[in-house]
Write a protein that binds this DNA or RNA. Sequence first.
DNA 1: CTGTTAGCGCGTTCAT
DNA 2: ATGAACGCGCTAACAG
Lengths: 339, 339
Amino acid sequence: MGNVTMKDVAALAKVSVGTVSMSINDSPMIADDTKRKVLEAVKKLNYKPNPYAKSLSLSSSRSIGLLVPGFINPFFGELAQFIQHELDLRKNSLMIGITNDSSEKEKKVIDGFIDHGIDGLLIVPVNSDHINLNHIYDLNKSKLPTVYITSYYKGFQENCIMTNLSKGSYLITKHLLDKGFRSIVLVSGHSDLVPFKERIEGFVKAFDEMNLKVPNNSVIEASGMNFKDGYNAIQDFWKKNKPEAILAVNDVMAMGIISSLKAIGVRVPEDVVVAGYDDISISGIQETPLSTVKQPIENISKEAVSLLFDLIEGKPGIQDPCYFDPSIILRKSTNRKIV
Amino acid sequence: MGNVTMKDVAALAKVSVGTVSMSINDSPMIADDTKRKVLEAVKKLNYKPNPYAKSLSLSSSRSIGLLVPGFINPFFGELAQFIQHELDLRKNSLMIGITNDSSEKEKKVIDGFIDHGIDGLLIVPVNSDHINLNHIYDLNKSKLPTVYITSYYKGFQENCIMTNLSKGSYLITKHLLDKGFRSIVLVSGHSDLVPFKERIEGFVKAFDEMNLKVPNNSVIEASGMNFKDGYNAIQDFWKKNKPEAILAVNDVMAMGIISSLKAIGVRVPEDVVVAGYDDISISGIQETPLSTVKQPIENISKEAVSLLFDLIEGKPGIQDPCYFDPSIILRKSTNRKIV
DNA sequence: CTGTTAGCGCGTTCAT
DNA sequence: ATGAACGCGCTAACAG
């Protein structure tokens, strides 16, 4: 099956292995006639090039690695899907690694990928309280083509393709302020981390622009980024605070928040309006369809893969993050007139 | 960087390349003293084995391919996560391919995977009206270790690890019947396909067991398996029918169904109860937490990967599907006493 | 235009 | 226990 080699093809086609190789790779130096002869032999023998030998010879495996926190949040699944599609177009394969938002896991996954001979790396940075960047430093030194996607690590902002997160928060906050809401809470993460720092900036900017003071305690740092973290954050918070609006840093947390409110008898949007971030597919079909900030992940995926292949081909790369503009999607969860 | 080779290590350690190779692979024939010397040189030079050469030599890339319909339905993301974890334990990498429930795409992805030299394949079968199995037939002939997961293709039931789908439908249907519901509708897919055929069997069995007649038109064939398909199926259906209960073949469709009902003013569970299938993470934190059938995907993933490695090692394989028992998770969406 | 041959880097005999 | 040499299958440089 898989063990018919070029030699066999060469023998059948009565040419040399070199000729077979060039024919298969459609080299212009081979006569069309010879090519056809070779291709025929290939068909007849059902010859498949040995990928390992090919990789060894070319020093390339035509596969790249993608690191994501995990797939509990469907956002990363959708992202992976777009990236997969882009790689497909380039006849490359995608290796998936899950970091679980842990630096240690991230290091292990990267090491594993390198052991497997990937040509390049796409990284969604880890979000956690305890981030160790030693391996990122090493990675940077190693010159393995790497693109950061949706965010970057402080101090490593080269080759990053992401949403203008600040702008997204700004837009949704401004929308709520324009509607008359004033007591707005942002359920975020550790403010040292880029994705949260940027979102908070946009949030604050919207208030500043209208000469409004950002209310006290209006930024909550949740302990994680999943449903339950949104759920828990609000269970505690609501006892002492009754804001008019709640913003979450992603859609799944927003869903957790809505569930949490519902569980204690608070209605959305009647009693409090809620918005998320990402615009994952399910957001639009929730019972209370979710207003959110749409990250243009299709364009981001396209651009990130394109940049990665530039790097692989030895082209220069970019020094600062390339930001894509988000847009806001207004649905029922924020649809209330304020009195 | 990556271009320090065994030769260099051998030179530094003053041994031959053969000795280096055996030392690295911890061969018992090498003196401990020599090993240490070699390992030291490896450290000092930061030597990494070239994965391409290694693959060529061993005819193995230590990577396996997983085919899924896509990640819009988070179920497959969660499945991928478990599989990834299992492969991790075995120092193998995971390649992801997305079929989009299309046979053509499936064929392309498989070809791509083979071109990249995967050691084995894990396939979630395509669900579509137009299934072409020629490539599956070829795959079967090629002897590439392959395990089917969550379902199988008719005629190819070897090496399949899946949920006892029939039992799941049976359990949830029986639960509703026991509660007194009689007019129950199953929103399913093409009944020729294994996953739907099996679910329908369980559905019918529950009625049979209680000597009840399955109501007419109680199985709807939706055109797809996502939110919108559930949504659409009900929008049409509800005009003419008002069942007491609706079962969906997966959770995201159930969510679409609930949204659909809500949009026309029908309450869940007050006016109609709804249940899904899969028990994805978000199901429990929906506004109306979803009753569902839990597929034991962690065990399924473990077993599937284990079987795949058995096959890779040349062990025999299994002739018939290995079924794992599901359980039902009862939440608010079915929580109503019937009068 | 095509044949010949030398690597690519590692694993693995076969002698010693 | 270790060194020398060959083979894995393919690409590319060189000769003709």
